[in-house]
Design a protein around this nucleic acid. Structure first.
Lengths: 340, 340
DNA sequence: CTGTTAGCGCGTTCAT
DNA sequence: ATGAACGCGCTAACAG
């Protein structure tokens, strides 16, 4: 079933078929109707490989993420994909699994499939691997990382806003010892978040509100472990902020396991606002980074460039906001005791 | 950068380039080495569209799911994708969003991109939409649904095993009033799970262990709502099983909101064992359906057919097992009172 | 407005 | 073992 057979059946040339599909206005209304009818009768679907081969456009964008089973990503993928469908584009999703050899595979896929642009939303990126894409002039959008260049746009997240709101909130609740559990510091994204936290804390007068810090791994077990460490300290924090919600959930567990109560004994604030966070015990107060917005804006940047509506090389801003649920409350006056 | 330029640079014909890429043994070792060197120098990547166009094989499988933000799917996608990468295949993921117009789009994608096979892992499927794929002789794998036919394989899940284990467990704990919160019964998968539950219950002597039933929606809010309804009944169940873990999490919330305790007052058993279930309060006992295994086996079926290693039209079995955590305990002797 | 034709980049004959 | 030439299905340029 190809364009030739459709042409034969409709008694027109292949060019007319192609035209009625791609620019119906350039063809006589009656012939167009006839062609369309034949197309439906024959259940004809144009072969995208062939179209891409000749047109040079695949109408396909690559989306590189770290790990689809990390709850940060599915929603991002979904909104990117929704936007794509809405505009008649397709998405080639690829996981790096946080490993650079997998990243190399991802990049190769994009080049071989000749996508019209790539969104790189991973937590860490080896710039070395991306030179291939850059040299081949693939339009790219990054999340935080990289610099803006002619064909490279960047979604920059305003971490400080949400974190500032959270710290102000905790301070107003009387907290002075505010802990922070970071992500794995080998990840650029984790370092970015940590710096934002430290920066905000300094704005509130660092020495007085001294922070207690530990390194997690952006997973539940890391948050659990790091929190246990903090609780074992002589003077543990009365409030803890974390680099992502999974870490906060781990902290929640550790606190509960120590026989302490959230928020009575310790307040906890997460980051990201994954769906899950509404369902923890207690429901988690957290800083929302809208993945829906992130996916949509990343797509838009690529789309507008592909359609010649706008140039790449933009900075796209996206905000964060504190969402209050039940994991924060006023600081205890006297220190609690670990009864377990 | 195409095969011609590589040929020119290596001073051989394009055919030789093609051969050293696809069947290196059919080419002289020295020329092969030279060609490979040039390929690396030029960073040449063959154009997959062109390859597909001429060879008729895309080395790409379609994977149709309902909703990537439903925690059931990411792990499935991941294991399918991992298997694909391992065998040099690619995956075209498509979401139906539970809507049949989106399913139509998915099907069109698969046809246009000429994938070598399609795994359809959605909760519900309109057979009408799939006739196109069937007529075009696309190898397909289904999850539970559909019948085995020449080019159609099927992963059949043994729900009864895990559900039986769970019921036996609850019965041994002294539970007699066992409730069930189903999924949305318009979904085939939800009906399948419900039937399995009802069937197992009958095996244990239906009238004595009479079930109390409610319909959920496979999401947290539906489980919450359904559970509230059950608690409002004159004689609520002492144990509740659910069609999936999200529903169970909703039930957990409703029970807590009623001032009751899990598992002391009511035992809860989920289904699927999504990662999240380890982190609920209390950790959820549930019936595991390995998405890792599901994704891998679905891929294998397609792969073996595509490579001529085995035929389609198989039934692939996959089991379920009870995993005990902390949401079940012996039934209360006397009835509790809702104190709220 | 419509038809004819030349490639797009590659794999695969068929020669050599 | 290697090369020349054809064609996969389609779009775009040019003619009419």
């Amino acid at each position: 079933m190809n364009i030739k057979q459709v042409a034969a059946r409709a008694r027109v040339s292949v060019a007319t078929i192609s035209r009625t599909i791609n620019r119906p206005e350039s063809v006589d209304a009656k012939t167009a109707a006839k062609v369309l009818k034949v197309i439906r009768e024959l259940n004809y679907y144009p072969n995208s490989q062939a179209r891409a081969l000749v047109s040079g456009k695949t109408r396909m964008f690559g989306l590189i993420i770290s790990d689809i089973s990390n709850p940060f990503f599915p929603e991002l993928v979904k909104s990117f994909d929704d936007a794509a469908i809405q505009h008649g584009y397709e998405v080639l999703v690829a996981n790096t699994d946080y490993k650079s050899d997998r990243m190399a595979i991802c990049v190769r896929k994009m080049i071989e499939r000749k996508v019209d642009g790539v969104a790189i939303m991973t937590s860490e990126v080896d710039p070395h691997l991306l030179t291939e894409l850059y040299r081949r002039r693939f339009p790219m959008v990054f999340l935080d990382l990289a610099d803006v260049k002619p064909l490279v746009s960047r979604v920059v997240v305003d971490y400080a806003k949400g974190i500032g709101e959270a710290i102000r909130h905790l301070v107003s609740l009387g907290h002075e010892r505010i802990g922070f559990i970071s992500g794995p510091l080998m990840l650029k994204s984790a370092r970015t978040r940590r710096s934002a936290f430290l920066g905000c804390l300094k704005k509130f007068g660092a020495p007085r509100y001294r922070q207690i810090e530990a390194e997690g791994n952006h997973r539940v077990d890391g948050g659990d472990f790091a929190m246990r460490g903090m609780l074992a300290q002589p003077n543990p924090p009365t409030a803890v902020m974390t680099s992502n919600d999974l870490t906060a959930i781990g902290a929640l567990r550790a606190i509960a396991a120590a026989g302490l109560d959230v928020p009575r004994d310790i307040s906890v604030v997460g980051f990201d606002d994954i769906e899950l966070s509404q369902y923890t015990h207690p429901p988690l107060s957290t800083i929302r980074l809208s993945r829906e917005e992130l996916g949509r804006k990343a797509f838009d940047a690529l789309y507008r460039a592909a359609e010649g509506l706008a140039a790449m090389g933009q900075e796209i801003r996206i905000s964060t906001t504190l969402v209050l649920r039940d994991s924060t409350s006023p600081a205890q006056r006297k220190r609690y005791r670990t009864h377990k």
